[in-house]
């Protein structure tokens, strides 16, 4: 064996090929089957899609690096289930490109944050976390309320997501900007369009409490309120894995 290696290490290309070969095995065995084994991701009929406003909010969540302190993955451990809620299923992040499972909890897990607090709580908390949680060490995101949301390109965002496998329809893509506006403007004709396209369970609300201008605060709160609520599969007694 060492004799063989003695010869191998005299050949640069031999070493290169050997390194590529030896190093690819692990990834091939562990990753490739995840795309083919059917049970990897559970079935969840009726799973909703993120609305354009929620996608915009998710992008803000990513932009601000929220994942550095907040996980979105409740593990199958008793204390986690009792603290946060039902453990996370693979299907719940099926439309998450990329996933935001996170790796660190400087703050609490957010996988079940959707619907847990009111919109007003979120707005106050994001403006200054210490107003509602005095001991919090989270940064203040007060600039979100002052920043107008860019929504003219949301159709392109949805189209890109469709390319990677999220089933947005042409109609959703065409109406993305007005749907983003409508979701934060209840009692307007635009709001009806959102509900028609994304389902009756869609949160339509004036998220930051102010009508009119659509802010980044609207988008981020809209996203936080949908986290963990695209499907209720995790609340069913046994997830239907085939």
């Amino acid at each position: 064996m060492f004799g063989l290696h003695y010869r191998l290490e005299t050949k640069a290309m031999g070493l290169v090929l050997a390194i590529i070969g030896v190093s690819s095995i692990g990834g091939l065995v562990e990753i490739a089957p995840l795309f083919t084994i059917h049970q990897t991701v559970e079935e969840a009929p009726g799973m909703r899609l993120y609305t354009p406003l929620e996608i915009a909010g998710r992008n803000i969540y990513m932009r601000e690096g929220c994942y550095a302190c907040h996980s979105q993955m409740i593990r199958t451990l008793r204390d986690e289930v009792e603290r946060y809620g039902p453990y996370s299923l693979a299907v719940e992040s099926k439309y998450d490109h990329p996933m935001l499972w996170g790796s660190k909890r400087t703050g609490p897990d957010l996988a079940r944050i959707g619907g847990k607090y009111s919109d007003e709580w979120h707005v106050r908390h994001l403006n200054n976390p210490r107003d509602v949680v005095p001991e919090s060490i989270m940064p203040a995101y007060d600039f979100l309320s002052r920043t107008e949301l860019r929504k003219d390109d949301l159709g392109e965002h949805l189209a890109a997501l469709r390319k990677v496998g999220v089933p947005y329809t042409d109609e959703m893509i065409a109406n993305a900007s007005s749907d983003a506006y409508g979701q934060a403007a209840p009692d307007t004709p635009y709001a009806e369009g959102v509900v028609k396209r994304y389902g009756a369970a869609t949160n339509v609300a004036s998220f930051d409490g102010k009508s009119g201008e659509l802010t980044e605060m609207d988008a981020l709160v809209a996203y936080l309120q949908i986290v963990g609520r695209l499907t209720d599969a995790a609340y069913k007694p046994v997830a239907s894995a085939e």
Partner: peptide
């Protein structure tokens, strides 16, 4: 997949558990 050539933002080809 980038949103467009005029956007910095792209969407990962993988999602969820495969992405993780």
């Amino acid at each position: 997949v980038p949103v467009s050539f005029g956007h910095a933002r792209s969407y990962s080809l993988f999602s969820g558990v495969q992405d993780a």
